[in-house]
Design a protein around this nucleic acid. Structure first.
Length: 357
DNA sequence: AAGCTAGACAACCGCGTTCCG
DNA sequence: TCGGAACGCGGTTGTCTAGCT
């Protein structure tokens, strides 16, 4: 559906606002209240779209907003909540009185991400980079060997900075598999989706990991799709624009043996805290409650995503048909619902209806 | 002093959801 | 019940400024 923005894009004013504009918004809201934003520009005499006015009020003009910098307590809470629920800025901001989602998001992007990276922690997964890289090697190297935990993609920039700062012994990393194909998928205009195929490293594979550049050019493949399930043609969203395809774009016969769910399915059904999580709890970086939340949340997020849900169900059905393991006999749906219920019990305040401004 | 770069933060945009006639 | 408008959220881009060369 083509959506009207409710304003004329050509005549509308954009860019930084003037004090006069702010004053008009404040005056209008104090008189009429913060509602019906589409009519605000007209009634208040502003050449802005209603959405823009609402944004200005919500994020900067509201009287209850804090103007000072984030405290270390707030910082800590953001990190912990992000570890637990990811980039749900609105929910995180609700736990921080006087802060908006935009505030929190900007602070995360400019300060906290960097801070975590410098500490050698992946801001996406909140796990040490060294652990992620070790897992990367495991995933690529052994088709029969399952990783001990689910892993997420590594932001190349963050990884690079971590490597520079922490001097991890990456020369010891010896991945034995390589992504052979990354193709663009135009199903979603809003994100770059790519289809991956895995190919083992053979004597003929033109690949070396002798330098930092090589390592950081590795595709961001260790997908943190909800629940960690990836199918043979799983698509992941990646900020990486580089193509790491080998000259031979056709999947090799060997590559066709590869199945993501062969080694990731286990974690999807039985989320567990790995050693790193426990270490982070010990270090006070992740509370026990949030650790539980984090585990549960993987399931919840997955279940909230219709596409992922149907995919998971399909995989689950497929797995149950072919598997004789009794540990997976509980239906996928029931397992997910159980986990969601636990999530509600553990963190009821995160599930409450958001309060409006 | 001028140009360049990175950091910080404000603002915009797209899309899913909700509301309402 | 349906379709369009409005709203909310998160990702991304734009702009300004300080510091460096």
């Amino acid at each position: 559906m083509v959506r009207s923005q409710g304003y004329d894009k050509i005549s509308v004013k954009r860019g930084v606002r003037s004090p006069e504009e702010d004053a008009k918004i404040v005056a209008f809201v104090s008189k009429h209240g913060p509602s019906n934003w589409t009519s605000v520009p007209k009634k208040a005499g502003l050449k802005r779209c209603g959405k823009s006015c609402r944004f200005r009020w919500t994020n900067y003009l509201r009287p209850d907003l804090k103007q000072d910098t984030f405290t270390s307590q707030e910082e800590d809470l953001i990190i912990k909540l992000h570890a637990a629920i990811g980039s749900r800025w609105f929910i995180i901001a609700q736990q921080l009185p006087g802060r908006t989602d935009n505030d929190v998001k900007n602070y995360w992007n400019t300060k906290l991400k960097k801070k975590l990276s410098q500490m050698g922690i992946d801001p996406v997964t909140h796990k040490p980079f060294s652990k992620l890289i070790a897992d990367y090697g495991n995933i690529e190297g052994s088709y029969s060997q399952k990783p001990t935990n689910q892993t997420s993609f590594i932001n190349n920039k963050d990884l690079k900075s971590s490597i520079l700062l922490n001097s991890e012994p990456y020369q010891t990393l010896k991945p034995q598999g390589v992504i052979s194909r990354i193709t663009n998928n135009n199903n979603n205009n809003n994100s770059q989706q790519q289809t991956l195929q895995m190919e083992p490293i053979t004597d003929k594979t033109n690949l070396s990991f002798n330098s930092l550049t090589d390592l950081t050019m590795m595709p961001t493949v260790i997908g943190s799709t909800d629940c960690g399930i990836m199918t043979e043609n799983e698509t992941i969203t990646s900020s990486s624009s580089s193509s790491c395809s080998t000259p031979d774009q056709d999947a090799s016969p060997v590559a066709s043996h590869f199945r993501w769910n062969d080694f990731l399915l286990e974690d999807a059904f039985v989320p567990t805290a790995d050693n790193n999580d426990q270490e982070m709890v010990k270090a006070g970086f992740l509370s026990k409650e949030l650790l539980v939340c984090r585990i549960e949340n993987v399931s919840r997020q997955s279940w909230n995503n219709k596409e992922a849900r149907s995919q998971h169900e399909a995989i689950s059905n497929d797995f149950q048909l072919s598997s004789s393991s009794s540990s997976y006999e509980t239906s996928f749906v029931e397992a997910m619902l159980d986990q969601e219920n636990e999530m509600f019990l553990n963190f009821p305040h995160l599930m409450e209806e958001p309060s409006h401004y």
